[in-house]
Amino acid sequence: MNPFKNFETRQVLDETCEVHGCKLWLTKVPIKGRLEELKQCPECTKSAINFFESKLNSQSKVNSKLANTYAVFDRDSLVSDKLKEKSLDNYKIKDEIDQHALNFAKRMEQFYRLGRTGNAIVTGPSGVGKSHLTYGLAKWMNEQFKAYENPKSVLFVSLITLFTKIKESFNSDNSYSQAEMVELLSKVDYLFLDDLGKESRKADTRNNEWAHQILYEILDNRSNTIINTNLTSKEIKTLYADDYGNGALSSRILEGVTGNSFVYPQEMEDRRY
């Protein structure tokens, strides 16, 4: 079927276009199953087509950019369904320390939005809201960058889930191979690591060296990593001062965190129960 058949049978009228001065065409165009006569300026029609194509191309570029930036958060984050419901909006303020924590998150959003670099770390005992706070910050940063028409790739990753999926890839192709994950986590603009330290096992030197090597490969190739952990800075230096790098990994973890850290008091009770 020839889509231009109606234009081939056009009738050139004596009327002219007020914009281009060329003669109008009278064509029959199918509208709701019937052929209707329509007067058209060929130049106006061409301009409209060019404008539409330009708009489609522009939107395609935007969508492509968002696919590699804004969409990364929902598409590639490794996070539990329960945590996905969390945000800074539903972070509960029960006492002064919670308000300080929320203020810290808002300050870090501004810090990164202004283009500054450096890691950040949130430490404290289990169950006080570290994952909620940092996931809420990640979600908010992702939305803010888009709102300011400067979308960035923001990724939130549970380290326990990450290493579980990498191990599963040894037996089947699950798109979470070690090489693929190191590549992804190294290149995103802002990486959030959830529960640092949980990937390491007591007295399992072989597993720890493997996991620590992967962490080193990721952190050695990036800045702007936001971490939450139960570990103190002293415990981080002890745990990650293994034979691989002789402490180089702990220095990568703590790189740039001066002024970008928040500590929940050790005496805080677990709020999950």
Rank of each mutant, 00 (worst) to 15 (best):
residue 252 R to Q: 07
residue 34 R to P: 00
residue 24 L to V: 06
residue 19 V to A: 08
residue 40 Q to W: 10
residue 20 H to L: 02
residue 162 L to D: 02
residue 209 E to P: 06
residue 21 G to F: 05
residue 138 A to N: 01
residue 200 S to T: 09
residue 134 T to C: 06
residue 224 N to T: 09
residue 31 I to N: 08
residue 87 S to Q: 07
residue 16 T to V: 12
residue 271 R to P: 00
residue 259 G to P: 01
residue 203 A to S: 10
residue 48 A to D: 15
residue 76 D to N: 15
residue 148 Y to G: 08
residue 27 T to Y: 10
residue 54 S to M: 10
residue 94 K to T: 15
residue 5 K to N: 11
residue 35 L to G: 09
residue 81 D to E: 14
residue 36 E to L: 11
residue 140 W to N: 08
residue 202 K to N: 08
residue 174 N to A: 06
residue 269 E to V: 15
residue 213 Q to S: 15
residue 263 V to C: 04
residue 180 E to F: 06
residue 218 I to N: 04
residue 228 N to S: 07
residue 188 V to N: 00
residue 127 G to C: 03
residue 148 Y to D: 15
residue 122 V to P: 00
residue 71 A to C: 12
residue 234 K to R: 12
residue 177 S to F: 07
residue 82 K to S: 13
residue 125 P to E: 05
residue 69 T to F: 03
residue 231 L to Y: 03
residue 18 E to Y: 00
residue 248 A to M: 12
residue 167 K to H: 12
residue 161 T to G: 09
residue 236 I to C: 03
residue 139 K to H: 05
residue 21 G to Q: 04
residue 86 K to I: 02
residue 192 F to P: 01
residue 190 Y to G: 05
residue 164 T to R: 14
residue 240 Y to G: 02
residue 45 T to H: 11
residue 40 Q to S: 13
residue 202 K to H: 06
residue 159 L to F: 09
residue 215 L to P: 00
residue 187 K to E: 15
residue 197 G to Y: 03
